[in-house]
Design a binder for these strands. Structure first.
Length: 253
DNA sequence: CTTTGTGTTGAG
DNA sequence: TCAACACAAAGG
């Protein structure tokens, strides 16, 4: 355009446009820019053709930088949890690159496909009854590997614990104190009752993993190498659950 | 020439 | 921390 001040952008702003989305700024040529401020610094997320795309870009970046609780433009959905898990596999730089150059959506969908592919075999969460209050939980990790944990209540310590199988998981995932563990139910969109449970881990450095936050009790931190680990449930999410009891709390979808 | 996104400012 | 504004750098 020949004159900046006669652009669409300026009239748009001057005639009462109200900011619809956080982090979204109109560009002189009609496109939309997305930006996020953090740590006294502006992170440019790229330019987009539509306003809504810019808003989504902001949401994705906001989640990566500040966790699933972060302020966002579009409301949280069921897949948001999955998205947090998805993001945890990539660095901030990588996620920003995906947002900026448009590969984010495809990557995320690919991630969901991988999770869903595992249900083809007889994938279902199985909680086999053992003696007393013990059960065996069969849960898949995001890579499709099956994990089995014995889970029971210990009267001596009045706590719910994972016993057999947990040690192996901790070692394999290189879990450290303060790391978070996410449990979520992956539904099968085509067939009902064909979903399965997934257990995923989150580095403590990121702030992802709101749904079921498990914190290792301070005094237990050194016992990570033991075959037991005391866990405490902080809060539940709205994840759909089929009558499973975890950590003494009945969770029903 | 077009588009991006940085420099900068003032409000909240 | 944020959007608005102005414009220089980057891209084709």
């Amino acid at each position: 355009m020949e004159n900046y001040w006669e652009s669409w952008y300026v009239s748009y702003v001057n005639y009462g446009y109200l900011q619809k989305y956080k982090g979204v700024v109109p560009q002189p040529n009609g496109n939309w820019g997305a930006q996020l401020y953090t740590n006294n610094q502006r992170i440019w997320l790229g330019t987009f053709t539509s306003e809504i795309d810019a808003a989504i870009a902001y949401d994705r970046a906001s989640m990566k930088f500040r966790g699933v609780d972060a302020p966002r433009n579009l409301p949280l959905t069921k897949s948001t949890l999955l998205e947090a898990s998805f993001q945890s596999y990539y660095s901030i730089e990588t996620i920003l690159g995906m947002i900026k150059y448009g590969s984010y959506q495809a990557k995320f969908e690919g991630y969901q496909r991988v999770l869903k592919a595992d249900k083809e075999s007889d994938i279902k969460v199985v909680a086999q009854g053992l003696a007393n209050d013990e059960v065996v939980l069969s849960i898949y990790d995001p890579q499709g590997r099956l994990w089995e944990f014995r889970y029971c209540y210990w009267k001596s310590s009045k706590s719910f614990v994972f016993t057999r199988g947990w040690n192996l998981f901790v070692k394999d995932k290189k879990l450290m104190p303060k790391d978070k563990i996410i449990f979520y139910f992956q539904e099968n969109l085509e067939m009902q009752n064909m979903g399965f449970w997934v257990i995923d881990t989150c580095k403590s450095s990121s702030h992802i993993g709101l749904s079921l936050k498990l914190s290792v009790k301070q005094e237990e931190e050194e016992s990570l190498k033991d075959d037991k680990m005391d866990v405490e449930m902080i809060q539940t999410s709205n994840v759909k659950i089929q009558g499973l009891k975890l950590f003494g709390v009945q969770i029903i979808g």
